[in-house]
Design a protein around this nucleic acid. Structure first.
Length: 714
RNA sequence: GCGCGGUUAGCUCAGUUGGUAGAGCGCGUCAUUGACGUUGACGAUGUCGUAGGUUCGAAUCCUACACCGCGCACCA
């Protein structure tokens, strides 16, 4: 009997030591697995942002993935779980810019491109170290020898190759469009990086001037200095007679030339049924302007200030709005002022209010037929594998959300006006252009210039399943591990990332990136509130692990956590599973004490054979759950068995048998208890890896490590 | 506006292909110098949101409604 079982289980003394043992064993690397006969099983870890610390969502993801990968490793698969970090362009740059501003009072322009990038690299190196440490603390059995970063040399080659291939296929183009401009971050962002917020606003109804025949309504009067038309529904009898007429007038000191156009996109019932068209500062107006060949003067600049002749020039848009309303009142032009709630668009990362602006940007065409892919468009290539079942989304109902998103998808703006990230691989010299890699020789002195912009971070993340395996080279890893088996991530990232990976992989490899997408929900606090910095209710996973142990934390976070659903986490729940870890400890103590020197091959009584069969049935059930990604059920079933069946029932019944006069029954029971304990450790290992391995190492009969013990097969 | 999810014990949630409701926590009673600092046994509490329908049988399938939450959207 080993002394350590006389004290309660202590996770803090155990976990680091056990993790180190695993790491040194090399078993995290599928190349080193002793009994891997079933072929590869692959998970690419969603790379956490290199901006700092892991939160509870990461902890959940790490836990679920580790459960899947340990299960498969024990089943005999070449289990590869490839870790990494994401450079998270905008998030990281704005974080460092903020730090620099605070510490030195300098902006990015004061530092310059090169110096800022240096600062960011230093910051990211430190962050990545922290993240690596935190991932280890969760017990993640990932292959550190294959670790990747979305902005390293290898991934840069992949990005440049993808860009070139898409450019050559005519999918990437440069175009003047209305983009989502973030005046705070000073960059464009994609449609998906927008957060809509409801705010109180006003709808103003007025005429441009006394002589103008039509009254319009808008919530942004300041933009009216950029109007070039008024659009009405072509069948609207109130305005039909004016269509085609043109008016010259002056609005707030700005001369305007307004044409009346008929356009079916106008709702006759809304407002006055007449829409002042501001082509340069509204998506819908831009589209109307294109249909009617209208000019599109820009009246708001990149800092969200007015750029027009007259008194508004240089004012912020908010100030300009007040001025215009004041002026309208003075002129007696304002007919109505109505309180409304309006949705405003803000940038997810910076919180800046989006200003739609016309800009020359790089886009990916999602509707163009692709010759190399059977004339299907990217949209179709994204829909197909989910429709056909080649990719399963869990929970299943989210596939409808996925379809809905794709159907409404517009061309993807991929260029960003920030410095941190993959730089657009395009070089120009006059009319000449080189794409993918720099022109040969000393291109800078030869007069070539590289595009200033960087790429949307999701462009590079889109290649995560294959660039991590060595693409564009045809590596053995790529042939062996792609497509991957599962992608496990939060449901909030379905569009940003999951859809983009399907898009990229379908285009680049003509294949799917993964077979199953497991989308977990949000972790909330005990009261059901979201964890947030402002509420100060966040639980740091590392603090939780220190306090209760990684095993208890893993169980608490997973049991009852169905895909797609939000769950609540409380100290009480985690405490319960800390007790459970100790329960296992004491089960072991009792069994080892009372079976010391037992013959493990003793013949079994019928009753004891039945006990083994009972556990075998549960093992089969748990296996089925794991194969169907029901970790939340499997974990709970093992918990129930170990505590209620093994401890409360079987051990209690065993006490008289082990001490009784029937020596054969006692020998049989002793052998059975040891066998049951061994199997329970195996079956619980994916969920509670540390305590089970620690106990395993103390079993007199143990052979090698639990992490590579064989999962019961039937 | 369109789409999606939830509604099950006091609380938090499971319930995998339809077969007379489960767990944890909490609560009550009892036991316990015990393998257990963190124990066990027994127990109470449910018109499974509402109203219809399909079925021998519905928490589960269908229809409508209510409340809560989420996603998407260019209502100027």
């Amino acid at each position: 009997m080993i002394d350590k079982f006389k004290k309660p289980y202590n996770s803090a003394d155990t976990e680091t030591r056990i993790y180190q043992m695993w790491e040194e064993s090399g078993y995290f690397n599928p190349d080193n697995l002793p009994n891997a006969t079933k072929g590869p099983f692959t998970i690419m870890m969603p790379p956490p942002n290199a901006t700092g610390v892991l939160h509870m969502g990461h902890m959940l993801g790490m836990t679920l993935q580790d459960m899947m990968i340990r299960f498969r490793r024990m089943q005999g698969y070449e289990a590869l779980w490839l870790p990494g970090t994401d450079h998270a362009a905008i998030a990281t740059q704005s974080r460092v810019e903020k730090d620099v501003q605070k510490a030195e009072g300098k902006s990015r322009h004061d530092l310059g491109r090169e110096e800022l990038l240096k600062r960011i690299d230093t910051f990211v190196e430190e962050s990545r170290d922290t993240i690596r440490m935190q991932i280890r603390a969760t017990g993640a059995s990932c292959d550190w020898s294959r670790e990747a970063f979305t902005l390293d040399q290898k991934r840069n080659r992949a990005v440049n190759t993808m860009f070139k291939d898409m450019y050559d296929a005519g999918l990437i183009y440069k175009g003047l469009r209305i983009v989502n401009w973030d005046p705070k971050g000073q960059t464009t962002i994609s449609d998906d990086e927008i957060v809509h917020q409801e705010r109180a606003g006003k709808l103003y109804t007025f005429k441009y001037s006394k002589d103008f025949p039509i009254t319009i309504a808008t919530s942004r009067p300041e933009t009216k200095v950029g109007d070039t038309a008024v659009a009405v529904h072509p069948d609207d009898i109130r305005y039909k007679e004016f269509i085609g007429k043109e008016y010259d007038l002056e609005f707030m000191g700005v001369p305007l030339h307004i044409k009346i156009v008929g356009d079916t996109s106008v709702e006759p019932e809304f407002g006055t049924g007449a829409l002042g068209v501001t082509p340069a500062h509204s998506q819908i107006d831009w589209e109307i302007a294109e249909r009617h060949n209208l000019p599109h003067p820009q009246v708001i600049d990149e800092r969200a200030k007015m750029m027009v002749a007259g008194p508004l020039n240089g004012l912020k848009v908010g100030e300009a709005r007040e001025k215009v309303v004041e002026w309208l009142k003075e002129q007696g032009l304002l007919e109505n002022e109505e309180d409304i709630t309006q949705n405003i668009s803000t940038a997810e990362r910076t919180g800046g209010v989006i200003e739609p602006l016309p800009k020359l940007q790089w886009f990916i065409d999602v509707n163009k037929p692709i010759k190399e892919r059977g004339n299907k468009s990217l949209k179709e290539l994204m829909l197909e594998p989910v429709r056909s079942g080649a990719i399963t989304i869990l929970p299943e109902y989210l596939d409808k959300t996925y379809y809905h998103w794709i159907e409404n998808l517009r061309d993807w703006c991929i260029s960003r006006q920030i410095w941190y990230g993959h730089r657009v691989p395009v070089w120009t010299r006059g009319d000449e252009i080189t794409v993918g890699e720099p022109p040969e020789g000393d291109w800078a002195t030869d007069g070539w210039v590289q595009d200033e912009d960087t790429l949307d971070t999701w462009f590079s993340s889109g290649s995560w399943t294959f660039s991590t395996l060595g693409w564009p080279d045809e590596t053995p890893d790529l042939a062996r591990f792609h497509p991957t088996d599962v992608l496990e991530t939060g449901h909030d990232i379905l569009f940003f990332w999951v859809a983009r990976m399907i898009l990229m992989t379908q285009f680049v490899l003509g294949d799917i990136p993964f077979k199953t997408v497991y989308l977990h929900g949000l972790i909330r606090d005990a009261k059901g509130q979201k964890f947030s910095k402002s509420l100060g209710n966040g639980i740091d996973p590392i603090v939780m692990i220190d306090k209760f142990g990684a095993d208890a934390s893993r169980m608490a976070i997973v049991v009852g956590n169905t895909p797609g659903m939000d769950t609540r986490l409380s100290d009480d729940k985690i405490k319960g599973y800390k007790h459970f870890a100790n329960k296992l400890w004491n089960i072991t103590r009792f069994i080892l004490e009372s079976t010391e020197g037992a013959d493990l091959d003793a013949p079994l009584t019928e009753v004891d054979m039945a006990l083994k069969t009972e556990l075998a049935d549960i093992a089969a059930d748990v296996t089925k759950d794991m194969e169907a990604y029901r970790m939340y059920l499997a974990a709970d079933k093992m918990y129930q068995y170990a505590w209620k069946e093994l401890a409360d029932r079987i051990l209690e019944e065993s006490k008289p048998i082990l001490l009784g006069d029937d020596k054969e029954a006692a020998a049989s029971r002793a052998a059975t208890l040891r066998a049951l304990l061994k199997d329970v450790l195996i079956l619980l290992h994916p969920f509670m890896p540390f305590v089970t391995e620690e106990i395993w190492q103390s079993l007199p009969e143990h052979d090698g490590m639990l992490i590579v013990a064989s999962w019961p097969s039937n």
